[in-house]
Amino acid sequence: MIPAAFEYAHASSVDEASKLLSKFGEDAKVLAGGHSLIPLMRLRLAQPAALVDINGIKELDNISERGGKLHIGALTRHVTIQNSSVVKDKLPLLAEIAGEVGDNQVRNMGTMGGVIAHADAAGDYPTLALMLDADVVTNQRTIHARDFFKDLFTTSLGPDEIVTEVVFPVANGPHKYIKFRRRLFDWAIVGVAAQKMNGDWRIGLTNVGPTPVRATAVEEALHKGAKPEEAALHASDGLDPSGDLRASPEYKKHLARVLTKRAIQQAQQ
């Protein structure tokens, strides 16, 4: 598993990274934790002509709370998010989710920006970003999460655009993420996030379609006073998941309903 040859450049600032990207042109890619990109390159499913390594851009590895918002720098590693007292205090659901991404090796290397930009259907942060109306900030603009995830592995990022941070609302009410997987280090077969915020529930689903899904029908039912088990029946409304080796479409929809019920119930405990 030898990747195709590529150019490599190391950037020390966002500016420099952006210049390097335009220099190398369309086939250049940002290298963050490398835990999605490098496996793809080894299988030669990705063959970028050049990599611009952003691991040296210290200001992107940063967590802060400003003006009622939680700012997570793009280069913040999963392990940092998982252990951050700021995150645990302001958006504990995010710390919980970070603790369930992959295994130790993945959590030591993988980054917030990498997951968001990579936009794998089974990525965990995109679900949270979407359901909480987070903002993805780049070196050029701010993009609402609902406008960001376009399709499988497809976002609205331009070729020389670099994610600099993801801005979440503060929410520390009842919450739960249930990630159904068969192995400790696996991606979600289906994931469900539940967060109570400003008196209402936000429900997000992972890996039930090409992009993360916000289960608005469940949210509405709960808003109207439905019990969790009733509301959860709507979790599969409008879903058309593709099947894979781990789960048939039918099973994924079933899991979406069961896990939604459990997530809401457990959040309330």
Binding site: R183, L184, L245
Partner: peptide
Amino acid sequence: LKTGTMIDYMLPSIGE
């Protein structure tokens, strides 16, 4: 072959 990587070929880990 559909299970040509360790992601698709399900070897369990110590966690299971």
